[in-house]
Design a binder for these strands. Sequence first.
RNA 1: GGAGAUGUACUCAAGUGGUCGAAGAGGUCGCACUCGAAAUGCGAUAGGUCCUCAGGGGCGCGUGGGUUCGACUCCCACCAUCUCCGCCA
Length: 425
Amino acid sequence: MLDMKLLRSNFDQVAQALSTRNEEFDLSRFKDLDEKRRTLLGQAESLKAKQNAVSRQIPQMKKEGKDVAPVLAEMKALSDQIKEMNGQLDAAEKELNDWMLTIPNIPHPSVPEGNSDEDNVEIRRFGEPTSFSFEPKAHWDLGADLGIVDPETAAKVSGSRFTFYKGAGARLERAIVNFYLDTHTEKHGYTEVFPPFMVSRDSMTGTGQLPKFEEDAYKVQGDGKEYFLVPTAEVPVTNMYREQILDGSQLPICHCAYTACFRAEAGSAGRDTRGLIRQHQFNKVELVKFTKPEDSYEELEKLTRDAEDVLQLLGLPYRVVKICMGDLGFTAAMKYDIEVWMPSYGRYVEISSCSNFEEFQARRANIKYKDDKKDKAKYVHTLNGSGVAVGRTTAAILENFQREDGSIAIPEVLVPYMGGMTEIR
RNA sequence: GGAGAUGUACUCAAGUGGUCGAAGAGGUCGCACUCGAAAUGCGAUAGGUCCUCAGGGGCGCGUGGGUUCGACUCCCACCAUCUCCGCCA
């Protein structure tokens, strides 16, 4: 959510900053909605002030033996009027607030121009695209041949875009999760949390998945309650500190978390239908930070490096791109994607997104901090990034480390996590 | 699932219709005393938020409704926590 005061005082600048975004929204409604609300608020408040003033006098009048009946009659009318005003005010505030939730974040000035992912700017590379002395197979074929990935059975049991991992495949997926969590906690200093996989509507709104992207989320009903399956650990972990004022000396707070992630992938029909790249359920280790505003961009660099590090340790070739305006997404002010080399695609494929949301989520979720007790509470900056996607890692390992005979070499760092297994055949 | 209890500020806790922006205690901060500390004394202290050029005003006692001229207080619903019973991985 944007700062309403900023919008009021610097409307043109904000409109300018948002104009290069690839999102649809109508900024022009702000002035009307805002003025309507403030007018009604002023009227309602002066009525309430009067009511409070008279109410304070009534016990005094009673004590003095005066007849309060005429005053009460008058106040009854005022009371009715206040109820009427409150109704109008509530409606106006809801209208303004609902509208505010549909406005995307202001991009950082350094975000490159551009309309689509083709305009993202490559920042750096690690390794080179894997070369093979034989015709490499796609991970879905490797997985099927080795009997470790089984989408057909998952289709019977659940539907399309689900997978059974079996045997060494299941072990590999689990090994990657543990390797990522151990690396981020022991080497990079993140505190691990294991969050709920279902969250409330408020939490989904706090991080910006709602209201705009409800069709992408799985909704669960039960016990008369409504939950959403987490699309990313970002949602439960960021919302841990919702409605809180943190102690500045504790910042930055850095968490890593494993969750399964659930996405409806509405609008992705026909895309990446084979293999592990686009599933309704996938595993991911997420990195989440809460920082002071002045530190957030430095922390974004660190977070991105931390995510890259696990790929380096695995020996997977990747590149980092800076996301352009048109590809930035609703909530981010700046974003890097890490893309791993995927031989079957013949290109780099996203395996991590690392974003600085600045105040955007903190404002929605009301997460503040103060350095000193006497300070005014300020919004934290929130950041997160995949550290990294697990299913896509499995796919990348199968493809990049395949051998001519169809076996897979296990990266050295994973061998201990695989119970000493050095290859899958 | 059944029965009961409890939600008040940083913490504990009083408050059952009006001057409650909430007694009291603890904590924290400031000041005094002290060489310093402890003890003591005095003072401050809702983590907040919204409107306003300003003086100021509105909201904030788990959340949301309702009753009332007026709600921390009465009514309803919900949420959370705790205890006991049952069941369960």
